[in-house]
């Protein structure tokens, strides 16, 4: 937490979040990170559906898949589900 923490008088009542969850970079937690082999990837988008953190997106303009490492916790589900084994988990 980089910002100054609030006193009990300043904090919202009952812990209502005054910051969006996106400001909390859960990608910090990971031990392993997914690495995609673009040659093997068929862009079937199975990984985007399985990612429990919504950290894998399909960028329409680029016509490609992007893994947002700020929110990827490195669980490895994408690598496990990929039908062409295009994702491997490497040390973060």
């Amino acid at each position: 937490m980089s910002t100054k923490e609030k006193s009990w008088k300043e904090a919202s009542p009952a812990g209502v979040c005054w910051k969006a969850s996106t400001t909390y970079l859960t990608g910090d937690w990971k031990t392993y990170k997914p690495v995609r082999d673009v040659q093997k990837c068929t862009k079937c988008l199975v990984c985007t559906l399985f990612c429990p953190d919504g950290a894998i997106h399909y960028d329409k303009e680029k016509g490609d898949i992007e893994i947002d490492l700020n929110y990827c916790k490195g669980c490895g589900i994408c690598a496990n589900e990929c039908p062409t084994k295009a994702i491997v988990m490497n040390k973060a």
């Binding site: 937490m1 923490e5 609030k6 009990w8 009952a14 812990g15 209502v16």
Partner: peptide, 14 residues
């Protein structure tokens, strides 16, 4: 977000 998790850095204040 109502009733969120509050870690050791905030629970006490609430």
């Amino acid at each position: 977000t109502m009733g969120p998790v509050a870690l050791p850095n905030y629970y006490f204040e609430f």
